[in-house]
Computed example of a mutant assay.
Amino acid sequence: MRSSDDRVYLAPVDHLRAAAAVLVVLYHGCQVLGARLQGREFRPAVDWPHSVNPAWTLVFEGHTAVALFMVLSGFVFTVGARGRPVRYGRFLGNRALRVYPLYLLVALLGLATQVSLPTWRELLGVVTFAAPAQPYGGVFWTLAVEMQFYLVFPLLNRLLTERGPGALLRLLAAVAVLRALVWLSSPVAEPHTVALYLGLAGRIDQFLLGMLAAWAYLRHRERLRAGRRVLLPVAGALALGLAWWFNQVRGFVSDSPLKLVWGTAEGAVWALVVLVYVAGGPSRGVLSRAVARLGEVSFSVYLTHFMVLAVLGEYAAGGPIRALVPAGTPPPAAALWLTLLVALPSTLAVSWLTYHAVELPFLRLRRPYTAPGVETPRPRQHAAAGGEERITS
């Protein structure tokens, strides 16, 4: 369990988790409910929403919340380790206790929607995150990427500790060059970028940038805090502007070579947001605590929101749910209102239950995974022993 001091430290991290979780719900809600209001399924290549309004584009390109989650993973683990060696077995055991209980429950319930019993191949696919297409599996691919990162984090942490940030920067450059070579060597005229964009090869930048942000946080927090009033608006504007630009070029549904660098740019912007926001320290008050509580259940929100949307989608075209939105409201706006009024509150209620009934009992089984060693300097008032037992992702 977190102590009161740890909760104060973690409040900014939980705020960012909450923002990412809400953005994911809004993003998928607009897609799923927007299409169902028109009596059909969402078709990305045809129906991708487009707007010149930056606020709308942040929702339409809400997949950027995945980048924020991945940056937070690299940041949180690196702060938790604080330069000490990571015990590989305990670290992976903790990650399994964090991810698998709720994931397996949702994935197996998804298989239960089939008419026939699942095969051994399907069950193996669930265990390895290569789950077959199912109504609740829209975010499972991100868990596969996270698990791949967990396998290499102890080594990356050692590189950062012993060689400094230059080692990770060189690794970033090497990955970028290799990605470009893969794209250039493709035998087709317009190489597909999906595998690079949705796999660890395209997402490792975001974890590494999160680790670099943690390195900067542990050493320069006071300086960053002093410049927060300027840096935080700049970082937020960059995140909003990048989402707007990506929407204008319809980047998500294209195979543009821009995707080779999109993950890096996206990760760099979110790393700046995380670094400046967390370095500024938490705000105290009812609203801060409420948002932090939402951040605590963000993993449940992430995994269960498709279940809620699947139910609402069956009734979105008519009935009392559709009546919540005035007649004549355009489908994107109607879908956003239904998501805000119904899908998001319903998902939060379900997530509160699954967090306390499924996640929390297993989270309490985790053990410290850092070995004794020289610690990286950190803010004294926010010291937290035990690595992930205090700072969780």
Rank of each mutant, 00 (worst) to 15 (best):
P54I: 02
V276M: 14
R293Y: 01
L33S: 00
L198S: 15
A235P: 07
H15S: 09
R7P: 12
F60T: 05
V182A: 08
T264V: 15
M70F: 12
A19Y: 04
R322N: 10
V139N: 10
R36L: 00
A271H: 05
L102P: 09
T339G: 08
S73M: 00
A112I: 12
Q248T: 09
P85K: 14
A371S: 02
V71K: 01
F60E: 03
A316L: 02
G373D: 01
C30Y: 02
G280V: 03
P368Y: 01
E146F: 11
L156D: 02
V261R: 11
G166P: 12
W245F: 15
L155I: 13
F246T: 05
R87I: 15
T354N: 09
L23R: 11
R221A: 15
R378M: 06
A243L: 11
S186Q: 08
A316F: 04
G29M: 05
L365I: 10
F362T: 03
Q114C: 14
W56L: 03
Y315T: 05
V99W: 02
G318A: 15
R179H: 01
A323V: 07
S116R: 15
P12C: 15
L68T: 14
V230P: 01
T161D: 07
P85Y: 13
E146V: 14
R40W: 00
Q38P: 00
L178C: 04
Y277G: 09
A237V: 12
F129T: 03
L336A: 13
E190C: 04
H305V: 03
V32I: 13
A327G: 10
L16K: 07
R221G: 15
L151F: 11
L160A: 02
A335S: 08
P191Q: 11
P154G: 04
L123G: 06
L341G: 08
A271N: 08
P154N: 05
T339D: 05
G89C: 09
V194W: 04
V350P: 04
V350N: 00
H28S: 13
S300Y: 06
L303D: 01
V152W: 10
E222C: 14
R378S: 07
V177A: 08
V79D: 04
Q206W: 10
R225M: 12
E359R: 06
G295L: 08
L232W: 06
A214R: 13
A195F: 01
R223D: 13
M70D: 03
L156A: 14
R219K: 07
L360D: 11
N94S: 07
S298M: 04
P233F: 02
A96V: 06
R121Y: 07
H28W: 09
F153L: 08
T304L: 12
A239E: 04
S256K: 11
R17P: 01
P54A: 02
G29T: 11
W244A: 14
W262Q: 14
